[in-house]
Computed example of a mutant assay.
Amino acid sequence: MRELRPGVWHWRARHPDWDEQQWWPELVSSYGIAIGDDFLLFDPLCVPDELRERATAVLLTAPHHERDARQLGLPVYTPPADTWLDWVEKFGADPDRVRGMDSDDLAWLRAGESEGHFHGPGAWPFGITAYAGREDNDLIFWLPWINAIVTGDSLSDFGDGLDIQLGGRTHVTRDDVVERLHPLLDLPIQVVLPAHGTPRDRAELGLVL
């Protein structure tokens, strides 16, 4: 764990679902960021005790990034999980095979086990703005109080440097995602905080977009 700047913490942990068949690296990143009286955990996994004691909420860049959110017992702010119609659109799934099925992502939260708040792109609590990446539930968060973005899978480093990641989606191209994210370059971003990979500077973001 290290403090990148006052009130901004980064740490990495081995993802429990990782194996050698995965296309993404074993270690994933999480962040703890202070804003006023709140301390927010982004895509948290293996939260250090000193940060867990301060935490007031969990924010997920994508529903499949729930990681340790369930065990933390905090309010969770997240984009919604995929529906079976999303699987048809995103992956070309056969509608007759998936019709009516529910995603396992965040099933516990949707069942009311913890306090859940579901949001798409646009204005979020805590003064955050969310931008859609390869889809409306894989987001990039703009945090203006620290001039940083926290990015989900759409903009991450899966071992070959920071880049657009499509993850097998068939409904969108790399150029589509670049066009969608290009407005980020109009923001005074100083640091990129990806869920996969390590923090990067604005120059690397410019090379991608």
Score class of each variant (00 low, 15 high):
Asp160Leu: 05
Val177Asp: 02
Asp160Ala: 15
Gly161Lys: 02
Gly168Lys: 14
Leu193Tyr: 07
Leu185Asn: 06
Asp157Leu: 00
Thr173Tyr: 06
Ile146Thr: 10
Ala148Met: 09
Leu187Lys: 12
Gly152Phe: 03
Asp186Ala: 13
Arg174Glu: 15
Gln190Asp: 15
Trp145Phe: 13
His182Glu: 15
Leu155Asn: 02
Glu179Leu: 10
Trp145Cys: 07
Asp153Lys: 13
Leu166Pro: 10
Asp186Ser: 15
Glu179Phe: 03
Leu143Gln: 13
Asp163Cys: 12
Ile149Gln: 05
Thr151Leu: 02
Phe158Met: 09
Glu179Pro: 04
Val150Gln: 05
Asp153Gly: 04
His171Met: 06
Arg180Val: 11
Asp153His: 13
Gly161Leu: 01
Thr173Ser: 15
Asp176Pro: 12
Ile164Ala: 02
Phe158Leu: 13
Val191Cys: 13
Val191Thr: 13
Gly168Val: 12
Leu184His: 04
Asp160Ser: 13
Asn147Gln: 15
Pro183Arg: 11
Asp175Arg: 09
Ala148Arg: 09
Val192Ile: 14
Leu184Lys: 12
Asn147Cys: 14
Asp153Asn: 08
Arg180His: 05
Trp142Lys: 03
Gly167Thr: 00
Gly168Pro: 11
Gly159Tyr: 00
Arg180Trp: 08
Ser156Trp: 03
Arg174Ser: 06
Ser156Thr: 10
Leu155Gly: 03
Asp160Pro: 01
Asp153Thr: 14
Val177Tyr: 08
Ile164Asn: 00
Pro188Glu: 05
Val191Met: 14
Asn147Thr: 09
Thr170Ile: 15
Gln165Gly: 05
Leu155His: 01
Phe158Ser: 02
Arg174Val: 14
Gly168Leu: 03
Ile164Cys: 03
Arg169Val: 04
Gly168Thr: 11
Asp176Ile: 13
His182Cys: 11
Ile164Tyr: 01
Ile149Arg: 00
Gly161His: 02
Asp163Lys: 14
Arg174Tyr: 05
Val178Glu: 04
Asp175Met: 03
His182Trp: 14
Ile146Glu: 00
Val178Arg: 15
Gly168Arg: 11
Leu162Trp: 10
Pro188Cys: 08
Asn147Ser: 10
Pro188Ala: 07
Thr173Met: 05
Asp163Phe: 09
Leu143Ile: 15
Pro188Lys: 06
Leu185Ile: 07
Leu185Gln: 06
Leu187His: 07
Thr170Arg: 14
His171Glu: 09
Asp160Gly: 05
Val191Ala: 09
Leu162Ala: 08
Ile149Gly: 06
Val191Arg: 08
Ser154Thr: 14
Gln165Val: 13
Val177Glu: 02
Leu184Asp: 10
Asp153Arg: 12
Gly161Gln: 02
Val192Lys: 04
Gln190Ser: 14
His171Tyr: 01
Asp175Ile: 05
Thr170Gly: 12
Asp160His: 11
Trp142Met: 00
Arg174His: 08
Asp186Arg: 11
Asp153Gln: 11
Leu185Met: 11
His171Ala: 09
Ser154His: 04
Leu184Pro: 04
Val191Asn: 01
Ser154Phe: 04
Asp160Trp: 02
Asp163Pro: 04
Leu166Asn: 12
Asp175Ser: 08
Gln165Asp: 04
Ser156Lys: 09
